[in-house]
Design a protein around this nucleic acid. Structure first.
Lengths: 362, 362
DNA sequence: TCCCTTATTGCTACCGGTGTCAATGCCTGA
DNA sequence: TCAGGCATTGACACCGGTAGCAATAAGGGA
């Protein structure tokens, strides 16, 4: 239908031919012209407006398909004052968490025309809020997802509200209205860890918790204590240490525990990083992990399965929480219907038993 | 100059007033009006056009500052047919690589008004190219960065060229014109590993390489062989195994090596994942890592420093390569001048000696 | 003094969509 | 037969910038 009559060489095979000319993407105007309607009507069709006659809609859909037309998200963003970008803000975290969250979000975004823009930040940096402000103000994000590393920051959330940016917080407990939250129920996982250790006959059990500033530290600790209680045990004050979710802090806590007159026979660390550190400290003492001392972590990071002996830990379904967050955030803007299980607002941790735990020595 | 004379109600307080009304962002029109110039001239200023009178420029800059104006990237994207988004496409995430690359890119993007959009993919999926095509066609990316997991895919690169999307490939060796490449010189690091082991007196040294399909596997292997040669050693065919860059493949290769009549006293694995697997296999035999058998990895992943004993490995400056790629990709679009060291087109690996290697047993 | 250059700047038309609101056609009840 | 209501559709302005080119002012040489 185009310049097919030119007598010259290379007569451009078919419609999809890619000569070396610019090859412009079809626009809404092209569709409108070919379907013989106004662009507004085409716009209605691509936005699934119910006020379009069935025949008209079919005709337009046919043209869209023939042309391979897809609306330009940039233009849509400008006109509607809402970009087709989803923001992910996070702080330094555990790489595996980041990756899993990204994957989860993308599981949902894929095919919807939305893209994921990432924005790591540093909450200790006093300028971090301005960075975030710039980010969400510049791009008019379709929404923002806040994983656990930043979801508890009320100042951050205030900024989002201020800019009318929809958001979802992923956290160990409910922090907000349920519509804005995905709950990971960390306490549940810790409880399982406690029951597992108690079930192996351990009585002298220690805990190394994460930093005070994270809600998850408290949740994991209190879930653990609760689990112990169920088994008729209590957490001795001397065996209740605080770490910082880092490997090094795990090493230090482990050393302190190993130096005690009455050493624990089992240790539950608030995450795998610290658990790995604890293992190192135990080894320094010449004791065997899984035999002399059982160690449990939290997260099921890649580290856990690659350590020697492999670490018993609590698997937190981060990727699933990312999917749920996206579904909740975008709901109506998604093209395909989400899976049933992603509609739920919470995930449940699960204990993964490996070689780092064993029955208490007689 | 505005509608100040209207007698009606709600005379709209002042320009900067922020009641609780929406608080509209200033636009180029606001700047133009206040500076008493046309928007085109303001546009020239924000785009650093040289054809603006100095006084005019200063006046406009002052207004911009006063208003806190920042151009809307979406509108700019629409008008200029180039978004302010940088794409990162990658496969197979070694999480740490992904994170480091993202960080490196963001080190440079930060403050430039550009954002990072991520697009993980699966090269084994036959539809992956279409996914990528949709991605770069929809968003008109300012550019794309291809880290080593995808940089060798010529079909992918062809798609980028086809869509006139600028790109940079990060790879172990030069794959393209230098302007499109960042080179990581993996061979160099492997050579250091060989020299280290030879220096410890090892003679019977094995290698577990990555999969054939990655250039980096060959580079690391041939660098290693070269290093051995320098030390007067050669890589025995029986000790030259192929893995898949996965933990499990490392375990398997390690077992095979441990089953040999003449066991190697040192093993160099093509990455840390496999090295961890090798360590596990060695342990199964009852031998001690670092004493009976020395093991060297490649990447310096978090795993390396958290293992017991900590792994001697080759640190690959991934983050720096991400920075370089961004600088090369965006050059002129960046607001602040890049650091000297980020202008270089290649990074150099470095051996990190830890506890998994030691002198050969007498 | 006048025409031609060069330096600046603004007018106007887009980019590819969306929002508002009026217009059109047809059906229904009075 | 006529007004009113519902279902559809389109005209037009606008989102916030950029691009091409004409317009205007100032400087220089003949």
């Amino acid at each position: 239908m185009k310049k097919t009559m030119t007598p010259g060489p290379t007569p451009r095979p078919t419609a999809t031919a890619t000569g070396n000319e610019p090859r412009r993407r079809p626009t809404i105007n092209d569709v409108a012209r070919l379907a013989n309607v106004s662009k507004k009507t085409v716009s209605r069709v691509i936005n699934q407006s119910p006020f379009v006659n069935k025949d008209t809609r079919e005709r337009i859909d046919a043209v869209i398909k023939e042309l391979g037309y897809a609306p330009d998200p940039v233009a849509r963003g400008l006109a509607s004052r809402r970009s087709y970008l989803v923001g992910l803000i996070y702080d330094n975290p555990n790489p595996q968490h980041v990756i899993d969250t990204q994957q989860g979000i993308l599981d949902i975004l894929r095919g919807s025309g939305l893209e994921l823009v990432i924005h790591p930040c540093n909450r200790r940096d006093k300028d971090f809020l301005n960075g975030v402000r710039g980010f969400i103000d510049r791009q008019k994000l379709a929404g923002v997802i806040l994983p656990s590393s930043v979801s508890e920051d009320e100042d951050l959330v205030a900024v989002l509200r201020e800019h009318d940016t929809p958001y979802i917080r992923i956290a160990s407990v409910l922090l907000d209205e349920p519509e804005h939250s995905i709950v990971t129920n960390d306490a549940e996982g810790a409880r399982q860890a406690a029951e597992h250790l108690a079930g192996l006959g351990h009585k002298i059990i220690a805990h190394v918790s994460g930093p005070d500033s994270f809600r998850s530290s408290h949740e994991r600790r209190s879930g653990f204590i609760e689990g112990l209680k169920t088994a008729g045990l209590a957490l001795d004050k001397k065996l209740d240490l605080r770490g910082a979710y880092t490997f090094q802090s795990g090493v230090e806590a482990g050393r302190r525990l190993m130096a005690l007159a009455q050493r624990p026979t089992a240790i539950f660390a608030g995450n795998d990083e610290m658990a790995a550190g604890v293992c190192q400290a135990v080894r320094e003492t010449g004791l065997d992990i899984g035999k002399d001392v059982s160690v449990v972590g939290f997260d099921d990071s890649p580290l856990a399965s690659r350590m020697w002996p492999a670490l018993t830990t609590v698997l937190l379904p981060i990727r699933a929480s990312g999917r749920m967050a996206s579904v909740r955030l975008l709901g109506d803007r998604l093209t395909k219907d989400p899976h049933e299980e992603d509609l739920d607002g919470e995930v449940h941790p699960r204990l993964v038993v490996r070689a780092s735990t064993g029955p208490v020595k007689a």
